[in-house]
């Protein structure tokens, strides 16, 4: 399959990329890893008049811990998965990167693209909701930091303006006694999630849950934050009864539709089960386990 014709521009730096986007009148797309965009263009579901290739911009592919974790938007999933800082201190991100598509796709695909594409089936959105992340956007009017709760507006639609580029993801430093996990049920390697659940918990000194955050993949028009499930956990000892209540709450927050990955009722029940397992794993990690 051959995509429709387009103008191809290589951005030298961020300012150049913004200028190219601004001059296209909103008809250009940013080309990062291309692992979602190029398939869409081959099916002609996307026919941008121009692509702005940001792969050659230096300085967008780093990982720094600087009070908070700063992940450059261009970092490849394969590099994220292997990064030692991420592995040791943010294992929920390793969980997530490791189950995106397949190893060949992960050699190209970027974390920025996974978020900016805003496909509710993508895996990072739920994890970033759970991590209470924010994204940094740069455009012709300057730079702004967008809390992740305000970023996903609809399927394939984010708060990014047409001349803005997502350049960085910021994640708060992990608190003491906190842990997180991402679990994904998929039919086969490389497929999108039937359901994915990201959970972060912070325990107090007595072992009760001081704070929890839960994100759901592919059960709605965007990734969903299951606030009602978070509420059921606060101040509670994470025993089987409390986990069951949180699972039921997350299931009621999900808005799945029936499709080739299964009927809606089945997916809702998978949310219930995976939520309990993800919280259990997050709690184990908060206590220093794996």
């Amino acid at each position: 399959m051959i995509p429709a014709s387009f103008e191809y521009h290589v951005a030298k730096d961020i300012a150049h990329a913004i200028q190219l986007l601004a001059s296209s009148g909103g008809e250009a797309k940013v080309l990062a890893g291309g692992q979602s965009l190029i398939p869409l263009m081959k099916f002609r579901l996307a026919q941008p008049v121009a692509l702005v290739d940001i792969n050659r911009i230096a300085g967008l592919g780093g990982i720094r811990e600087n009070g908070e974790l700063q992940i450059g938007a261009l970092i490849r999933e394969a590099d994220l998965e292997k990064n030692p800082i991420i592995r040791q201190r943010y294992p929920i991100i390793t969980d997530t990167a490791a189950v995106i598509a397949d190893p060949l796709v992960r050699n190209m695909a970027t974390i920025g693209g996974n978020l900016a594409h805003a496909d509710p089936a993508n895996d990072h959105p739920a994890t970033m909701l759970a991590l209470r992340a924010s994204v940094v956007a740069q455009g012709s009017k300057g730079e702004r930091v967008i809390p992740i709760d305000d970023f996903f507006l609809d399927t394939f639609t984010t708060a990014l303006r047409p001349d803005e580029i997502l350049i960085e993801i910021r994640i708060p430093k992990p608190a003491a006694r906190s842990g997180g996990a991402y679990l994904k049920l998929e039919r086969k390697v490389g497929d999108f999630a039937i359901v994915g659940v990201a959970a972060m918990v912070r325990l107090d000194e007595s072992g009760k849950i001081a704070a929890a955050s839960i994100g759901l993949t592919n059960v709605g028009l965007t990734a969903i934050r299951a606030r009602n499930a978070e509420e059921t956990l606060r101040g509670q000892v994470p025993d089987d009864k409390v986990l069951a209540a949180a699972g039921a709450a997350a299931a009621s927050a999900a808005q799945p539709v029936s499709d080739l990955r299964g009927p809606a009722d089945y997916k809702r029940d998978v949310v219930r089960v995976l939520t309990q397992r993800a919280i259990r794993k997050a709690v184990a990690r908060a206590k220093g386990g794996n």
Binding site: Y8, I38, D53, N55, A78, P103, L104, V105, M108
Partner: peptide, 28 residues
């Protein structure tokens, strides 16, 4: 031809990638 099967895999600067999901101009 849909980024699923890997029959088109080549190494780009040493990394295995699916060449059906990459424009030739990107490899300049």
């Amino acid at each position: 031809d849909t980024t699923s099967c890997g029959a088109c895999t080549v190494l780009l600067n040493g990394r295995a990638v699916k060449s059906c999901t990459l424009f030739a101009v990107q490899t300049d």
